[in-house]
Amino acid sequence: MGIKVRFFGGFDFKQADIKQRDIAKIGYAKGVPMGGDLNTAPTGKSPTFIVAALRDPEGANLDRIQIVKGWLDKQGQGQEKVYDVVWGGDRQPNTNGKLPAVGDTVDLTIPTWTNTIGASELSAVWQDPDFNTDLNAFYYVRVLEIPTPRWTAYDQVRFKLDLPKDIPLKTQERAYTSPIWYNAN
């Protein structure tokens, strides 16, 4: 039960690796699993990651997989950047590089949703486009489901409630992985 996620990091993952039958096999062969360490990048190489997610068998389809990168800037302040890595449907990022929302099938009167948007499974190989060999960093994965009714929506229907406007009735459930750490030296 729940969303299944696999996440590996290394310096040699290729786009073709995603076609491998067994992601764990290629993942362990060419890299480290979530929670693992990548040390000093070989000259001219940036970290590559292979990630795959499968939705909960009874749950909602997947909207997208994101990789979140974190590091400390020159002032010692924590910085984070979120990269959309792979997503369901025929969406294209707009000119600002922002991926449009997946849509919304939630019917609040029942409440329910349909798995007619998003995808059952998503997988990708991704390379850090902003890599700095000398900077420590972490990378973790976030998998978003399509919007589903929040628990408040179920209560609203079951108990026939008139809820205040500021109570959220929909949510996008998500799965997180442990990070993979890049150690500059």
Partner: peptide, 19 residues
């Protein structure tokens, strides 16, 4: 290709349902 293994051993109905 599928993230759940092709070979499943000694699974109960509940365990199969979970997958």
């Amino acid at each position: 290709a599928f993230m759940v293994s092709q070979q499943q051993n000694q699974q109960s109905e509940q365990e199969v349902a979970r997958l």
